[in-house]
């Protein structure tokens, strides 16, 4: 690139990054304002954070959200990884493509369709709305991403390893736990991670299938935002931003670590 276009490129990128981050920093900035609205910054205070940590209801909701995300991601990862093994083991190409298409339906479906159809489904079966229905829904929409994270790892794995293990007398359980599992562990971890963030981020599906008894942070933020500005929500966004930052750094380190380990693995023999 010439110098002139380079200047233009850098200027353009700076503008996009400013656009992406201004709203977020605007939110966080006002979480430290002594005022009551998100305008006319009025001086520094921790008051909104203090209020947030004394809000027992909000803390309960935060813990529920976290528990929901950890638990649903765990179950979705187990089911999704086994599903990926199943798709991988399907020899017929047409069947495999059909399975993959079915798998991806929930990935591309709009949230309202997932939410509305699950609502009909639970009502049809007479399942009450609450933690259970929300948990099942979250597991359901997390499974496809786990499959999509694990499947490429399986396809990258060399089949000669499995043949070798079987020739040397390994049982199918040993093949799974000693050969296949170590090869796909990075995919499983990435899948768990993505499932976890999907759960934390979801609003629309939860909104449809939660009853009166169970709330997540998204639902609570929506309810409060509809009533106008509440700087406690700003304080919450400050905390969630730091949390997201930690998650991103963690994910980055994880991918770096697994990439390094793979490289080391290549060198070893």
């Amino acid at each position: 690139m010439t110098k002139k276009t380079k200047w233009f490129a850098n200027g353009y990128l700076t503008l996009v990054f400013v656009l992406l981050y201004v709203p977020i920093f605007y939110l966080i900035m006002y979480s430290f304002s002594t005022g009551k609205t998100m305008s006319h910054y009025q001086g520094f205070t921790w008051a909104h954070y203090v209020a947030l940590f004394q809000d027992a209801r909000m803390i309960q909701i935060a813990l529920d959200t976290l528990l929901l995300a950890l638990l649903s991601a765990l179950i979705a990862t187990a089911i999704g990884s086994l599903g990926a093994l199943g798709i991988y083991a399907t020899k017929k190409r047409q069947t495999r493509n059909a399975l993959l298409s079915l798998n991806n339906i929930l990935m591309v479906s709009p949230d309202v369709i997932i939410g509305a159809s699950f609502l009909i489904f639970f009502t049809f079966l007479g399942i009450g709305l609450g933690f259970g229905s929300v948990l099942m829904s979250h597991i359901a929409f997390e499974i496809p991403i786990v499959v999509l994270m694990v499947l490429p790892r399986l396809q990258e794995m060399s089949t000669t390893m499995i043949d070798a293990a079987e020739d040397l007398g390994a049982s199918s359980w040993q093949v799974l736990s000693r050969v296949i599992l170590p090869a796909i562990i990075p995919g499983i971890l990435a899948g768990y991670f993505m499932a976890f963030t999907y759960s934390l981020d979801d609003f629309a599906v939860t909104f449809f299938v939660t009853g009166n008894g169970f709330e997540t942070l998204s639902i609570e933020i929506y309810a409060r935002a509809r009533q106008g500005i509440d700087l406690e929500v700003n304080a919450l966004s400050g905390i969630l931003f730091v949390f997201a930052l930690l998650l991103v750094v963690g994910y980055y380190l994880l991918t770096q670590y697994t990439a390094k380990r793979q490289k080391a693995g290549v060198k070893r023999p």
Binding site: M38, D201, S218, A225, V233, L240, V248
Partner: peptide, 18 residues
């Protein structure tokens, strides 16, 4: 990617203020 990990409702809420 980082902004996609901030809850969508919080981003909408920021714009209510802005």
């Amino acid at each position: 990617i980082l902004p996609t990990w901030i809850n969508l409702l919080l981003k909408a809420y920021a714009f209510i203020g802005i």
